[in-house]
């Protein structure tokens, strides 16, 4: 369909709205002046200062460990949950189960966070690294479940049946056929889980305890005191990591897509 000048204008405005604040943030992280509105020349001093800020670095390290751990557990549980949603159409409590998968996606974080905290206190677990990891696993697994589920819905069941038919037992079939084919979705799920964990402030604030301050908690406590170029620098690095990750992921998908199209072209000719 033709996309007129009107469409282009709207899209340009919307994307400008989405990107300008982030771009400004990145630019001002290189500002030599401490004042936000004054451009004092290019400088990387805030990055150096950030690097030597032990509190910030500790928080970053905690965040990465929580992220990797919770994303990994969340991906395993989420993939199992997706299999349950797609493959087990009837079992007692299925409604409850799918409810527990969908609800955390929209549940206000303050509720999820508060309720988890009260659970940890009620059973007497000391809050810290592990409670944050459990909390993050709980909500990220639901996102993973949704991502993997959408792949499983379009999965051709006859591939599994063919494996069974050729003598491959069910568990082996899952690892030899199903898992390799849904792997891109599982990896995407992991990446999403990791970013969500990296990003979370509210749930972590409730679930954490002494010694387990995550980066968003740290940033939040400093942001409340006002805009600082040091935080701009930390944010820029976070944005950079995520952007590079997403770009790599999309290049890989593009190449796969290209390969597939080439294959099909090849096949059409070979026929």
């Amino acid at each position: 369909m033709k996309s007129g000048r009107f469409d282009t204008t709207i899209l340009t405005l919307c994307f400008a709205f989405l990107y300008i604040p982030i771009i400004i943030l990145v630019i001002y992280s290189f500002n030599a002046s401490k004042l936000v509105t004054v451009w004092g020349g290019f400088s990387t001093q805030w990055y150096r200062q950030m690097w030597s800020n032990e509190g910030l670095m500790d928080a970053a390290w905690v965040t990465i460990r929580v992220g990797i751990l919770s994303a990994s557990i969340g991906t395993v549980l989420g993939t199992l949950a997706a299999l349950t949603l797609v493959r087990f159409t009837r079992f007692p409590g299925r409604m409850l189960f799918s409810g527990m998968i969908y609800a955390p996606l929209v549940m206000p974080e303050v509720i999820t966070g508060l309720s988890l905290l009260l659970l940890f206190v009620a059973v007497g677990i000391d809050r810290g690294f592990w409670t944050v990891t459990i909390a993050h696993t709980t909500f990220t697994m639901c996102y993973v479940a949704i991502v993997v589920q959408s792949r499983l819905i379009t999965f051709d069941r006859s591939l599994e049946e063919a494996a069974l038919d050729l003598g491959c037992p069910p568990v082996k079939t899952f690892f030899k056929i199903t898992l390799p084919l849904i792997l891109p979705a599982v990896i995407a799920g992991w990446m999403l889980a990791f970013t969500l964990s990296l990003d979370d402030l509210v749930i972590a604030s409730f679930a954490t305890g002494p010694g387990a301050t995550t980066l968003p908690i740290k940033i939040y406590s400093q942001v409340r005191l006002g805009v600082t170029p040091e935080i701009n620098a930390a944010c820029t690095i976070l944005i950079g990591i995520v952007t590079i990750g997403v770009i790599i992921a999309s290049v890989v998908t593009k190449r796969q897509e290209y390969q597939r199209q080439r294959d099909e072209h090849f096949a059409a000719k070979g026929a």
Binding site: D156, L159, E161, A162, D165, P180, L181
Partner: peptide, 13 residues
């Protein structure tokens, strides 16, 4: 028994 599937069900990987 072995089956030839309507969709062929060839393992794409």
């Amino acid at each position: 028994t072995n089956m030839m599937f309507q969709s062929y069900a060839l393992f794409p990987h």
